[in-house]
Design a protein around this nucleic acid. Structure first.
Length: 272
DNA sequence: CCCGGAACCTGAAGGC
DNA sequence: TGCCTTCAGGTTCCGG
């Protein structure tokens, strides 16, 4: 599942191959990829443009183009961007292909068809509502505390809300809460200032370590070169169904929070 | 504003 | 072996 560390890795590893390159062709193998635009409209607006910059905001990839437009890509659950020789056979589940003037193609592969490509002149209309970047200096424990204090929803549901903090998904929410010793169903506004500080530090540590490991390949996530990431090998609770807590040995539990599978240790993360 | 549930999608995994 | 059901989750939309 691409979350902040995975999208950051894609950005880092794609950048040297796409920045400064001319888009020589665009094809959509699945029409819905461009929604709400049509494939024809998206293709027309992308063709002949030069890529000036590649940035990440939350889980969005932002390709800055030479005419002021931005190509926005969201990988959602099962999407990946693979870099390959332009005339090779497209990888399985290729839904869109962008060809470049250096002989490479960027293949947007996505089994589930949740991923989207959009083009806009008004980037704020897409990312304007996102909360702070958790690894930037502005994301302090005080800011996190302020954001959580207004919510009584389970703290895990709050962490998954992109308007609160941008980039955290199901895996890293579970890992951060475990590292901080906080039960995922604790009301967000019930955390003590000590717990908020611990959670703040845990979020930053968990995300930074996952970026070091080039993201987590738990299902269909691949890096642009086709390699897997290794962040999942450091997971202590996420996706570890039926296993024991690596800290205390207690069997991990799985519950549903806001419709999301949630793993935690009932001993290390006691309920209120 | 806040909250929770459904919808979008289809491959993978498990049951019989 | 194969059919059928269930599960997975990022985001948006909708109703309360």
């Amino acid at each position: 599942m691409p979350e902040l560390p995975e999208v950051e890795t894609v950005k880092n590893e794609l950048s040297p191959h796409v920045i400064g390159r001319l888009i020589t062709g665009v094809s959509l193998e699945w029409e819905g990829m461009a929604r709400p635009l049509t494939a024809a409209e998206l293709t027309k607006r992308l063709s002949g443009r030069r890529i000036k910059a590649l940035n990440r905001r939350g889980k969005y990839l932002l390709f800055g183009l030479d005419d002021g437009q931005t190509l926005v890509i969201h990988l959602k659950m099962t999407g990946s961007l693979l870099l390959g020789e332009q005339f090779s056979v497209p990888p399985q589940y290729t839904r869109a292909t962008i060809t470049l003037d250096n002989g490479y193609g960027v293949y947007f592969c996505d089994a589930r068809k949740f991923g989207r490509m959009q083009i806009t002149e008004d980037i704020k209309s897409i990312i304007g509502g996102l909360g702070p970047e958790p690894l930037e200096a502005g994301f302090t424990a005080a800011v996190l505390g302020q954001l959580l204090s207004r919510r009584k929803t389970p703290v895990k549901a709050a962490l998954l809300d992109q308007k609160l903090v941008a980039g955290i998904g199901n895996m890293y929410a579970d890992e951060s809460l475990f590292a901080a010793g906080i039960h995922p169903e604790r009301p967000a506004n019930s955390l003590s200032s000590k717990e908020i500080k611990h959670l703040h530090q845990s979020i930053r540590n968990v995300l930074a370590q996952a970026i070091e490991a080039k993201g987590a390949s738990v299902s269909t996530y691949y890096r642009p070169g086709g390699e897997k990431g290794d962040a999942q090998s450091a997971f202590k609770v996420a996706h570890r169904r039926g296993q024991n807590c690596p800290e205390c040995g207690q069997p991990l539990e799985r519950i549903c929070v806001r419709g999301r599978g949630t793993y935690f240790c009932p001993v290390c993360q006691p309920p209120l």
